[in-house]
Amino acid sequence: MSIGLYSASGGMALEMKRQESIATNIASSSLPGYKREFIQSSEFTDAMYESMNDKSEVKGIGIGGTIGEKKVDFSQGALKQTGRPLDFAINGKGFFEVQKDDNSKMYTKNGSFMLAANGDLITSEGYKVLGDNGVISFNPNYSLSDLTVSNDGTLMIEDKTGNTMNSIDKLSIINVENTDSFKRVSGSYFTLPPAQGARNLAQDANPEEFSILNRTIETSNAAPIKEMVSMIASMREFEMSQKVLKMFDTRFRLEQQKLTR
């Protein structure tokens, strides 16, 4: 069988995977803090030229359509005011730090938090939100409607009697220089391999790289135009590969008819 047949089918398989990525971006448009994903495939022609110029070794010429790395686009999403006391958004760099039940840490831009029955600040999936003093927890005597949050992520409850602010904790905002180090584990959550130089931006004296907004969420950064254009391009690639496949099919049939007599 011809290699070209498998190349074309590999191309089709790749485009179907790309469509799934695009569909995920579109379906996740209501997820706060969602960062769009895209599949970066290695270039067929690059691989081919490489092996043409370097005759000592024939590099795999995109057999099966190379599926390269899945990348995440970390650009800032639009900010939307919701009025909900436990909605937080980061304007700028950095991620919220959350902890799973097994004490492993994950990072997210999704700041739409809730209160657990024991007063812990948790995400919608149940992960605990971390601050300077560990898991952030609210005293049941406080009223969430009195919550105020400063730009650097310090959570305070206004005390009506004494006119003072009771500081609860400060949100941990973690960032690394190279955001590609973040590995996606689910729609809004990322993990960091150890020793990446992760820094808690909130502990800077005058944080400039971010500000925390309260009663606001960061919407998905998947722009409809980009997704639609990707969808159209991918679809036509798919169609072209399909035409190539059909050509091979015709050719094999003709060969078989003409040559086996």
């Binding site: 995920t24 997820l31 691989a47 795999g60 099966g64 790395e69």
Partner: peptide, 19 residues
């Protein structure tokens, strides 16, 4: 794969649900 290891792997989401 034919071209070497994929560092990040392929993990595709399956949509959203009501929290």
């Amino acid at each position: 794969t034919a071209n070497g290891a994929i560092p990040a792997g392929i993990q595709l989401g399956t949509g959203v649900q009501v929290a």
